[in-house]
């Protein structure tokens, strides 16, 4: 679907994208992760034809962006990271306007608008002014807009920045829904764990380079699964307030694990081993009369991994 070959982009002396090569097959939900300034937005803008690359090629469906920009643009729906809307413009007019920019008009546009607004849950806002919508609604409207011309590839730059948790979940569901409808989706984000829940594969970017790419589990394990079990794992125990003190005193008596931190209704313990080991430990704990309302293994590995992968360029940054 999307192939990037040796992409370079420099702003003056600064290297924003440094020899990026990537292939995203059809039907993927691909996540682009990286810290601020990693070059995600730059890459996305180049792919959408909004920025001229310094070197390299972008191919979509076998068509080269530089040679057939119009054909390529027809395959892409783009949702920018920050966007404004026009004042004094209604939702239906907004859709009609962008429809006419794609050469869709009249009844077909009406029909598409109805369908897409229903898809993004904005049907009842149809006759409201665009600038009166909340941020999450605007974002969903922008997704609906990007789908007007039925693109095979949907590219979203940080779709969940500035959204509250509920809107994030809604956005996530919307994207997974679209993905199951057969759209290839590329999204960028700072937050790895957020992407890991929905993406089929991810690419981690830092200083303009891809430091890791593939399925989430592959990246996490990275051929060091035996080592991983020896690392200290963190589990979170949920304890209701009335049993809290009692639980802490009881837990202190264990030697199989250490108490990492104690919060109002959560206790974090560090242990060694895999999930089976965790379950065993929990049995032990409950046998000792600690009343838990729940427990889970903390997915900190993702973040630690992310920090490790993206931290490597730190020194070069200071030199630059």
């Amino acid at each position: 679907m999307l192939t990037i070959e040796g992409l370079y982009k420099t702003y003056g002396k600064q290297m924003a994208v440094d020899g990026l090569s990537l292939h995203i097959p059809k039907g993927e939900l691909f996540g682009f992760v990286g810290p601020n300034g990693a070059g995600k937005t730059t890459t996305i803008r180049i792919v959408c034809g909004l920025l001229k690359e310094t070197g390299g090629r972008v191919l979509i469906d076998g068509k080269e962006l530089a040679k057939e920009p119009d054909a390529v643009k027809r395959c892409i729906g783009y949702v920018p990271d920050f966007f404004g809307v026009y004042d004094n413009f209604k939702v239906s007019e907004y859709m009609e306007f962008y429809g006419s920019l794609y050469g869709i008009s009249g009844e077909e546009c009406e029909r598409l608008t109805t369908d897409l607004l229903a898809l993004v849950n904005l049907s009842e806002k149809r006759e409201e002014y665009v600038d009166s919508l909340s941020r999450g609604m605007k974002q969903r409207l922008c997704v609906a807009r990007a789908l007007l011309h039925d693109p095979a590839l949907l590219i979203l730059d940080e779709p969940s920045s500035g959204l509250d948790p509920r809107a994030r979940v809604e956005m996530k569901e919307l994207l997974m829904n679209l993905n199951s409808m057969g759209k290839t989706i590329v999204i960028s984000s700072h937050i790895l764990s957020e992407l890991s829940e929905m993406c089929t594969s991810i690419g981690i970017m830092d200083h303009g380079r891809l430091v890791a790419v593939g399925k989430i589990d592959d990246i996490l394990n990275g051929g060091q699964s035996s080592e991983q079990t020896r690392e200290k794992q963190i589990a979170v125990l949920e304890v209701s307030r009335e049993h809290h003190e009692d639980a802490v005193t009881r837990l202190r008596q264990f030697t199989d694990f250490s108490i990492e931190s104690v919060m109002e209704n959560k206790i974090e313990i560090g242990y060694e081993g895999d999930e089976v080991r965790l379950n065993e430990l929990m049995m032990e704990i409950m046998k000792q009369g600690v009343i838990l309302s729940g427990f889970y293994q903390k997915r900190e590995n993702l973040e630690v991994k992310f920090m490790q992968l993206t931290g490597s360029g730190e020194d070069t940054e200071h030199e630059a």
């Binding site: 034809g49 119009d70 892409i76 783009y78 404004g84 809307v85």
Partner: peptide, 14 residues
């Protein structure tokens, strides 16, 4: 350009 609506316009067929 400030609102990035210009970018969106440029990604369309116009």
């Amino acid at each position: 350009k400030e609102r990035q609506t210009f970018d969106i316009m440029l990604t369309t067929q116009i």
